[in-house]
Amino acid sequence: MKRILIPLFYATLVRPWLKYIIGVRFENVKTLREAKQFIIIANHNSHFDTVSMMASLPPKHFLNTHPVAAGDYFSKTKVLDWVSKNILNTIHINRKREPGQTGQPSTIDVLNGLLKQGKSLVLFPEGSRGEPGVMSDFKSGIAVLLKRNPGLPFIPVYLVGFGRVLPKDKTLIVPLNCKVRYGESIIPDPTKSVEEILELTQDAVLSLRKRDERRYDKFAFN
């Protein structure tokens, strides 16, 4: 039931709403058609990022692709928990682990397990949403994952303008043009070090950024 209903919900309601009311444009999505399993790596400015990323996925990838979200934030209320797990298909992980805690597997292991099951992931390696228009350094976990899974491609995605539609700590969604831009998928060389792979992913995302689009990234000033 869920297999049919949720993609249908996206195709008939979420996608038209995003495209025609909010003004989201999906660029170069055809990259996804050829890919089988992948990790999508995107910059993160807004909660809207996750919704648009999921809406951009073709139906065949939809149920197999999981955005990775911070459990401490999304498990706060029952509604948010249900929506994020069922509608957005997210995997909740614990960002802050007590240093001495050993019972739980680490985040990397959880994600690695999912990849081994053949699932695809959507990751925002900046960690948190941060300042609009400013991309902070990636956390190294993504590179570790790629190194442990040789042959697994990653797809860089640059999100433009979502920080204005729904900034951090705001609830009012204001329609303004924004873009989800896919890059070509890249298979990193597993013999390279974690640092080199991390740099590769970061450069891949940054290379999708265009100079004259800076204006869409953030408001002129407060």
Partner: peptide, 29 residues
Amino acid sequence: AFISFSTLREMLSISPLRASDRLAIFLCY
């Protein structure tokens, strides 16, 4: 009306606005 709405959104998107203008922009829509 839809074309007018899209034009409004296009124009607002390229304009140098402030974060505190968001409510006013919403009322425009």
